[in-house]
Simulated scan of single mutants.
Amino acid sequence: METLAIIDFETTGLSPGEGARATEIAAVVLENGQIVRHYQSLMNAGVRVPFFITNLTGITNEMVRCAPPAAKVMQEVADFVGDLPLVAHNASFDRKFWDAELSRVGRTRQQEFACTMLVARRVYPTAPNHKLGTLAAFARLPDTGKAHRAMADTEMTAHLLCHMEETLIQRFQIGHLSHALLRVLQRVKVADLQSTIRKLIRAA
């Protein structure tokens, strides 16, 4: 597997367009199927954490008040990630917050996201659903800690990605799982998965 950056946000709501802000971010660098670097920080965006978010994540208003400013965190994590291809579970969510928080510090994303949730729908169509926790249990992935905390979810996404690579290698004899292949697979129909991969192998 090529070197990738995997990220996960915890936030105050569903969309930055509706005023939600990030409360925590984690990122890992995955190299040759191994996590080689970590970044994690709570972040203070100057907004209140709703009670239901605290119940879900365990992140309190006091924790956020004591955290570094969101601008400082985003500068650090953007430098940490650099220009590595990005991966997230339910990437449409994390991409919105990545772009919105970056724009607040005058930076712009250059690379594309790949989504492990979309790919998992194609690779594991018989899973009960494709939430990260469900997939972790379905695939018997290692426990990484409390769900809905950024580092635990980021590390779980890394394990899921590696498991999907193993599954695709065994099922279709691909050489490795690249970011470009992830982005192709996340768009194909389940019924077209095999034929799409066969075409890509022949074209390689």
Rank of each mutant, 00 (worst) to 15 (best):
L56W: 01
T57C: 08
T57Q: 06
G58P: 03
T60D: 13
T60C: 05
N61V: 06
N61K: 12
M63E: 10
V64A: 07
V64F: 02
A67W: 01
A67K: 13
P68Y: 00
V73E: 00
V73M: 01
M74E: 04
Q75L: 12
Q75Y: 06
E76H: 02
D79H: 00
F80L: 04
V81R: 02
P85S: 14
L86G: 11
L86C: 11
S92I: 06
F93W: 06
R95K: 09
K96P: 02
K96I: 00
D99S: 07
D99N: 12
A100E: 07
S103I: 09
G106E: 05
T108G: 10
A114N: 07
M117D: 12
R121D: 07
R121P: 06
R122P: 12
P125C: 04
T126C: 06
H130E: 04
T134N: 06
A139I: 06
A139H: 03
A139E: 14
L141N: 11
D143I: 14
D143Y: 15
T144E: 14
G145F: 11
K146M: 09
A150K: 00
A150V: 04
E155T: 11
L160Y: 05
L160T: 08
H163F: 15
H163K: 14
E165Q: 14
L168C: 09
Q173T: 09
H176E: 11
S178E: 00
S178P: 11
A180P: 02
